[in-house]
Amino acid sequence: MTREEKSRVIEDLTAQLAATNVVYLADISGLDAETTSNLRRSCFKAGIQLNVVKNTLLEKAMEASENNYGDLPSVLAGNTSIMIATNGNAPAKVIKEFRKKSDKPLLKGAFIDQAIFIGDNQLDALVALKSKEEMIGEVIGLLQSPAKNVVSALKSGGATIAGLVKTLSER
């Protein structure tokens, strides 16, 4: 690879890193072609971009990026695959599901909205993270709950004013 090709790859990686807040680093070495193809297919279905990268080029792209990756470059050893997604827990779910059939991929580290997770032992914590859509759904559910209680109380008291007052005073 020439110096110009390397600088082009670093620029492309830097642009990819700048465009996302969710980056996972995984080790998929030792997977055969069919298993790797299945992993790529699972990632594609989940909206995850999976690429195998050279560690030195990725490290230089992380240094050039505006994001602070902290100790994440320290895990760049051996074979490294980068998983880029929009949903913070999607790559962790794909890895966990895939590990039911195989011992790989191994999670090296993750960068999610300025938070850094290092090590395969963080996989369960990453799977438990809620997506933005899930959090919005929970908040909406919590906000709707009191209104539903008032409406049901009004309906249970009957149509008379005395019944409404009695029901509201009981609550």
Rank of each mutant, 00 (worst) to 15 (best):
Val165Lys: 13
Glu4Val: 07
Val150Thr: 02
Lys148Phe: 02
Leu107Gly: 00
Arg41Asn: 14
Thr167Glu: 09
Leu143Trp: 01
Ile48Leu: 00
Ser169Glu: 15
Phe111Ala: 04
Leu143Phe: 06
Gly158Ile: 14
Ala19Thr: 00
Asp71Met: 14
Ser74Leu: 09
Ser65Pro: 00
Leu57Phe: 01
Lys148Glu: 13
Ile10Gly: 07
Leu142Phe: 09
Ser156Phe: 15
Asn79Lys: 09
Ser131Thr: 15
Leu106Asp: 10
Leu39Gln: 06
Gly70Met: 12
Thr167Ser: 11
Ile82Tyr: 05
Gly158Ser: 12
Glu11Ser: 11
Gly30Pro: 02
Gln49Asn: 14
Asn67Lys: 08
Val150Met: 00
Thr86Pro: 01
Asp27Lys: 10
Ile84Trp: 01
Lys96Met: 06
Asn55Gly: 11
Ser145His: 05
Lys108Pro: 05
Ala147Asp: 03
Glu134Ala: 02
Thr80Lys: 09
Gly30Ala: 13
Val52Lys: 01
Asn149Ala: 12
Thr2Ile: 10
Ala115Ser: 15
Phe44Thr: 07
Ser131Phe: 04
Leu143Ala: 06
Leu57Pro: 01
Gly157Ser: 14
Asp120Phe: 06
Ser7Phe: 05
Glu133Arg: 02
Cys43Ser: 13
Asn79Met: 13
Ser74Ala: 06
Ala153Tyr: 08
Ser169Trp: 08
Met62Arg: 03
Gly88Arg: 14
Ile116Arg: 15
Thr160Ala: 15
Asp71His: 13
Ala19Asp: 07
Asp120Leu: 02
Ser74His: 12
Leu72Arg: 04
Leu58Arg: 01
Lys130Thr: 01
Ala162His: 08
Leu107His: 06
Glu63Gln: 09
Lys100Ala: 09
Leu13Arg: 02
Arg3Lys: 10
Leu31Asp: 09
Thr2Cys: 01
Val75Tyr: 03
Ala77Ser: 07
Leu72His: 05
Val94Gly: 06
Arg3Cys: 03
Ala77Tyr: 14
Met135Arg: 08
Asn67His: 09
Asn121Ser: 14
Ser152Arg: 03
Leu76Asp: 11
Asn51Val: 13
Ala159Phe: 10
Val22Ala: 05
Lys108Ile: 06
Pro73Gly: 02
Pro146Ser: 04
Ser81His: 02
Glu5Lys: 13
Asp27Met: 05
Gln16Ser: 14
Gly109Ile: 03
Lys130Tyr: 00
Asp113Pro: 06
Val150Asn: 00
Lys108Ala: 06
Ile116Pro: 12
Asp113Ser: 08
Ser131Trp: 12
Glu134Asn: 08
Arg171Val: 10
Phe117His: 00
Ala153Cys: 12
Phe44Cys: 11
Ile10Asn: 04
Lys104Ile: 07
Arg8Glu: 08
Pro105Cys: 08
Thr167Gln: 12
Asn68Pro: 12
Leu129Gln: 10
Val165Ile: 10
Lys101Val: 11
Pro146Thr: 01
Glu34Leu: 11
Val23Leu: 04
Met62Pro: 00
Ala128Asp: 07
Glu5His: 02
Asn87Tyr: 15
Ser65His: 12
Arg41Lys: 13
Val151Cys: 04
Asn21Ile: 10
Phe44Asp: 12
Glu170Ser: 13
Leu13Gly: 00
Ile10Leu: 04
Thr2Pro: 02
Lys100Ile: 04
Lys54Asp: 07
Gly30Phe: 11
Phe98Glu: 07
Thr56Lys: 14
Val23Trp: 02
Ile84Leu: 08
Glu34Met: 09
Cys43Leu: 11
Met135Pro: 07
